[in-house]
Design a protein around this nucleic acid. Structure first.
Length: 359
DNA sequence: TGGAGGAGGACGCTTAAGCT
DNA sequence: AGCTTAAGCGTCCTCCTCCA
């Protein structure tokens, strides 16, 4: 009888602090397996949230690069929970095996989970970061809560690659000729009106051969483009795009982010200031058909598209074009190495609105 | 018919972790 | 120790809806 009462009192005292003491006493690592609900070692979702808010609110993350920031916060979390801080955070699923949770730092409201399903039983630690990089709130939820916020279930994906050869500071025509199909079209190339919009559909007698495009673009090497800043990558291409349209003989240009960038010439443009080329949701060498009207009664494939890839050095607030490669989609992976492993990465994106944080 | 506003999804650079 | 790559997540673009 007395024993039972003691047991009950004991259980009441299982506060977050007591679990933390136990973990510290045992010198556990975040990879040490504990049973779900273990009264000595398992934090409830509520306890996690309580401890983390206490430990992290007000933390200043100003000036940290994303991955640095992510690691910094993970270290803080280990300390808050009483775990030994590992030298590196192994890529386990979930990252914190012991308490079965993952951590996401969110300055924006777009939560992105890569290459895995939302697991209903897993806990998700979401760190809210203010516009001036201060941690303002920590929210801990189980996967089933997140799943309800995933209104679409859409998996978005991307391919990545990098140049496989040795960079030479010059323009290089990687594909001597177009795909057989495109060659059969460009034979009849005549010219096009300078007022043609570059985003219109290609025409049989207006499509230049890859060598012709190369000739017109090769002198862009050395050109300087204003560098808008690291946080506005998406805008940088615009300037180059305009220069390219100009060099190809268009009098106008319109930026509309379609694929390929310059549809009228079946030309996709990339401006790189780092090695990794993000290819988005397609592979250049696929037979996948494009939603573009046929040429000579034949459909156009991904691999028919020509890729103009420019590399630039950033010096202060200017990008200087240093390299230029021109290649067909068909030949793309002869010269550019796809990132191995998964080859393709998939993610789900979940909007975290105010409602969620106030939950 | 067009502008505002918001949701959804794509794009891009950097870097910690993994690999050799 | 140096290289590779799988993230990590901020930001921007597009499309849809609503209202005038």
């Amino acid at each position: 009888m007395t024993y039972l009462i003691l047991r009950r009192q004991q259980r009441m005292k299982n506060s977050a602090q007591m679990i933390k003491d136990n973990i510290m006493k045992e010198q556990l690592t975040i990879y040490h397996e504990i049973e779900v609900g273990d009264p000595e070692f398992w934090y409830s979702t509520e306890q996690m949230e309580e401890l983390l808010n206490e430990a992290l609110q007000g933390t200043d993350l100003n000036g940290m690069a994303l991955r640095t920031r992510s690691k910094f916060v993970k270290v803080k979390i280990c300390e808050a929970f009483g775990y030994q801080v590992p030298k590196s955070f192994k890529k386990t699923q979930p990252r914190f095996l012991s308490q079965k949770f993952d951590v996401y730092n969110q300055k924006s409201n777009n939560l992105q989970i890569w290459n895995e399903e939302i697991s209903p039983s897993r806990r998700y630690v979401l760190i809210k970061i203010s516009f001036d990089d201060i941690i303002t709130q920590v929210k801990v939820v189980t996967g089933d809560v997140l799943a309800t916020l995933d209104s679409t279930g859409t998996l978005t994906q991307k391919y990545q690659a990098k140049y496989a050869g040795v960079h030479e500071r010059k323009a290089t025509l990687l594909s001597e000729c177009d795909t057989d199909f495109i060659q059969s079209i460009t034979q009849s190339y005549n010219s096009f009106d300078e007022f043609t919009a570059p985003d219109t559909n290609p025409k049989e007698d207006e499509l230049m051969g890859i060598d012709e495009i190369f000739d017109k673009l090769k002198d862009l090497i050395g050109t300087k483009i204003p560098y808008i800043g690291a946080t506005q990558e998406r805008n940088r291409g615009g300037h180059l795009h305009k220069m390219i349209c100009d060099a190809l003989g268009y009098n106008n240009f319109k930026e509309n982010g379609q694929f390929p960038d310059i549809k009228h010439q079946l030309l996709e443009v990339k401006l790189q200031t780092s090695e990794t080329i993000d290819l988005g949701l397609f592979t250049p060498n696929s037979y996948e058909l494009l939603d573009i009207p046929q040429l000579n009664n034949e459909s156009i494939s991904m691999l028919d598209v020509r890729y103009a890839i420019f590399y630039g050095d950033v010096i202060e607030d200017t990008i200087t074009i240093t390299h230029f490669y021109l290649v067909t989609g068909e030949d793309f992976f002869t010269y550019f190495k796809p990132f191995g492993g998964k080859g393709i990465n998939k993610k789900i994106q979940i909007p975290l609105n105010e409602e969620f944080w106030n939950l």
